[in-house]
């Protein structure tokens, strides 16, 4: 009897678990459908909204955000970023020639004009310009993204700590940041790359280090403002530790400008990296748009295609990120939210 009961309860539990699992899954799906359809279906609204305006007000900001993002320019930006990422991921299927063709090889026909075999012309060593354009996408993204993440993470941590503890620690940290800001960034990058060596990881590291002061300053300003707000005091009264106050209470409230700046800066970093590789500070094993332009610059008069197309790729990529950044800023801008 008892065992039977036990079995029953166990069965019940299992079925309950199964049900709850199904329920969670259902809930997630429902959440996705109800929240993301705004992104894909134009003019979509919650069906029950007109009757239930009470709920309506709660969703207003989320829906506003998504709707603002739907401006045509932002859409173009998202499309560009999406395509660049796609190109970067699926590069091996998109090129006319495999990656191996571009390592330590020389082909005939340096700077030849576009032909059937080479749709956008050839470079100094007779490489296919078109294939190099596609290989360049991955290089740009793989260097820019980790570099900027590095600067954001460390910049935010340093900025919050400096602003939160203020006093001498703040003074010392901010002086160091000032020095780094006063040092011309391009030169610092070149020197650092020269010291570390011309490898991808080191270029990332150099750029990551360079971005730190900017984010640290940005977040320090907002934390100093937020620190004096009542919610920080109430968190302290509630007995939260310093770490918890810094990263659970203050950070979410000041992260917005960082998110906006982050998107812009991806574009900025890609631009600077192109500049650096144009000056010759690049990883020679990688295919980079900037360095391609460097190689072709001397022959701009008679072979413009070799430097024109890589430049166009840089412009499009950076433009994409800038457009998304613009859209994000408009959508997140608190000043535009109220009438």
């Amino acid at each position: 009897m008892r065992t039977k009961m036990k079995q029953n309860t166990i069965e019940k539990k299992i079925s309950e678990e199964k049900e709850s699992k199904e329920n969670t899954f259902k809930r997630i799906v429902n959440w996705f459908i109800s929240n993301l359809k705004f992104l894909f279906i134009p003019f979509s609204r919650y069906e029950t909204l007109v009757e239930k305006e009470y709920d309506y007000e709660k969703t207003i900001s989320k829906r506003l955000f998504i709707r603002r993002l739907k401006s045509p320019l932002t859409m173009i930006g998202i499309l560009i970023v999406f395509s660049i990422v796609t190109i970067a991921v699926f590069q091996d299927w998109l090129t006319l020639y495999p990656r191996e063709w571009f390592i330590n090889q020389v082909y005939s026909g340096a700077f030849d004009p576009p032909s059937a075999k080479y749709p956008l012309g050839q470079t100094d060593l007779g490489y296919d310009v078109f294939s190099r354009l596609i290989f360049g996408a991955r290089t740009s993204l793989t260097i820019a993204l980790p570099a900027i993440l590095f600067s954001v993470v460390f910049g935010v941590i340093i900025g919050i700590i400096a602003a939160y503890y203020s006093g001498p620690l703040d003074a010392i940290i901010m002086r160091i940041m000032d020095i780094m800001m006063a040092f011309p960034a391009l030169i610092l990058a070149m020197v650092l790359i020269n010291i570390f060596g011309q490898k991808m990881e080191y270029i990332m590291l150099a750029y990551g280090l360079l971005g730190i002061p900017f984010y640290a300053r940005l977040i320090r300003g907002s934390v100093l403002q937020a620190k004096s707000l009542p919610y920080v005091d109430s968190a302290r009264v509630a007995g939260a530790s310093n770490l918890r106050i810094m990263f659970r209470h203050i950070l979410p409230n000041v992260i917005q400008p960082i998110i906006i700046s982050f998107t812009f800066d991806i574009g900025g970093i890609i631009l600077s990296l192109a500049g650096l590789s144009f000056l010759g500070f690049h990883d020679p094993t990688l295919i980079e748009w900037g360095f391609d332009i460097n190689k072709a610059a001397g022959r701009i008069a008679d072979a413009p295609w070799a430097s024109f197309w890589p430049g166009i790729m840089i412009v499009i990529t950076v433009l994409g990120f800038m457009l998304v950044g613009d859209g994000l800023r408009d959508a997140l801008d608190p000043r535009l939210k109220n009438l």
Partner: peptide, 21 residues
Amino acid sequence: LIGVSIPVFWLGLILQFLFGY
């Protein structure tokens, strides 16, 4: 927006090509 997205050295090259050559 286009202005901030253009690499300055590339713009220079294009100008060279157009007006110089």
